[in-house]
C-alpha cells in the first residue's frame, strides 16, 4: 500500500512536513510528545518564550474558519519567536477564481518558511506540500475529512499525562466518525502508540465504509461500547447533519449517543472524557459531564499549544540544524 510517509520525512527520516499521523512511526510520535512535554514544563515555569524560530515567518492559511485551532497555532508560533501572519481565505481569493496553487505561489513570493493549512477538502495540505518550494514546511491543521494530526497529538499528550502509557488502554471514539478528520488521526495515533483497543461508536449513517479496515471495532450502541473503557473521546456533531437525512434530531442523537452521567458510569471508574471542541452541550455531551471531574477538555486546549510548538520546532529543525 502507498503511504504519505515519504513526503513527510526527509532523507534522514526527520519530519519536514506534518500532514498525517498515518505513515509516521512510534518513535517519531513519542518524540513529539516528549518535546511537547519539555515545552509544557518550561511554560509552566513562567518562561513562555523561546528563540527557536526567531527570524522565521509562519503563515496560517485558513481556507475554513476555525477560532481555536488558529489561536493555538498563533500562540505556539509566537512563543517560538516566529513572525506570524494569519490569513483567513475562507471568504476571499479562492472562493472565486484564484486557484489553491496561485494562492500558494503568491505567498511563497513573500519568503515564508512554513504554512499551517486548514482546508475543507481532503488532501489539500498534501497538495500544497507537494507543490510548495522545497524550503517550506507544511503543517496540516485539518483537511476535509482526512486528518487533523496536531489535534490528535494533543489528545495523545493529554491521554499520556492522565494515563502515563498507551499499552493496555481501551479508547472509545463516539459520534460523527464519517466527517471527522480528528477521528482518523486519533485512530492512527492510538494504534501506532500501542493502545489495546480502539472502538468507534456511532449510528451507521455516521460511519465511513469499511471502517474496520482502519483497525477499530465498531459499536452502534453507546452503553455496550463504553464497557471497560479508559478514555472516551466525544466528537462534535455539526448541525447540518440533521438537514442531510443523516440523523432525525439532536434530542434523539443525545438519547442514543450523548454522554450523560448515567452512561459515563458504564465506563471504567477512572475513565477520562475528552472532546476536541467546541462542545454542543446537550447534543453530544451533557454539561455535567463536560464540566465534571472526569473531563479533561480544557487541559486539551492548554496542551494544544505545547504540542503545536513541538511540531513546529521539529519540522523547522531539519533546516536550522539546531538539535
Amino acid at each position: 500500500m502507498h503511504t504519505i510517509e515519504n513526503l513527510q520525512l526527509n532523507s534522514q527520516g526527520k519530519l519536514q512536513h506534518f500532514l498525517s499521523i498515518e505513515g509516521l512511526d512510534k518513535s517519531l510520535l513519542t518524540e513529539i510528545l516528549d518535546t511537547a512535554e519539555s515545552f509544557a514544563y518550561i511554560s509552566e515555569q513562567q518562561v513562555k518564550k523561546f528563540p527557536l524560530l526567531r527570524g522565521k515567518t509562519i503563515v496560517n492559511l485558513f481556507f475554513e474558519n476555525s477560532t481555536r485551532t488558529r489561536a493555538t497555532f498563533e500562540l505556539a508560533a509566537t512563543r517560538l519567536s516566529a513572525d506570524v501572519l494569519s490569513m483567513n481565505i475562507a471568504t476571499s481569493a479562492t472562493s472565486k477564481g484564484e486557484s489553491l496553487l496561485d494562492t500558494i505561489r503568491n505567498l511563497e513570493a513573500m519568503q515564508v518558511d512554513m504554512f499551517v493549512v486548514r482546508h475543507s477538502l481532503s488532501g489539500a495540505a498534501h497538495f500544497i506540500a507537494q507543490h510548495a518550494a522545497p524550503h517550506i514546511s507544511v503543517i496540516n491543521a485539518g483537511d476535509g475529512r482526512h486528518e487533523h494530526p496536531t489535534q490528535a497529538m494533543l489528545d495523545m499528550f493529554t491521554i499520556r499525562r492522565a494515563k502515563q502509557q498507551f499499552s493496555g488502554l481501551r479508547v472509545a471514539i463516539v459520534g460523527d466518525i464519517l466527517h471527522s478528520r480528528v477521528a482518523r488521526s486519533q485512530i492512527h495515533a492510538l494504534s501506532i502508540l500501542g493502545a489495546e483497543e480502539v472502538r468507534v461508536i456511532a449510528p451507521k449513517t455516521l460511519l465511513p465504509a469499511e471502517v474496520e479496515s482502519l483497525g477499530v471495532s465498531v459499536y452502534h450502541n453507546l452503553a455496550a461500547g463504553l464497557k471497560n473503557i479508559d478514555v472516551i473521546i466525544m466528537l462534535r456533531l455539526q448541525k447540518e447533519r440533521m438537514n442531510s437525512a443523516l440523523l432525525p434530531s439532536e434530542s434523539e442523537y443525545f438519547k442514543c449517543f450523548g454522554l450523560s452521567n448515567d452512561k459515563l458510569t458504564i465506563a471504567n471508574k477512572d475513565a477520562i472524557v475528552m472532546h476536541p471542541g467546541p462542545i454542543n452541550r446537550g447534543v453530544e455531551i451533557s454539561s455535567s459531564v463536560a464540566d465534571g471531574p472526569q473531563s479533561v477538555i480544557l487541559q486539551q486546549v492548554t496542551n494544544g499549544i505545547a504540542v503545536r510548538m513541538a511540531v513546529m520546532s521539529m519540522v523547522m529543525r531539519r533546516k536550522t540544524g539546531t538539535e
Partner: peptide, 9 residues
C-alpha cells in the same frame, strides 16, 4: 470503500 475511508474522500 477502504481507501476513500482512509483518505477521507
Amino acid at each position: 470503500g477502504e481507501m476513500a475511508s482512509r483518505y477521507g474522500l
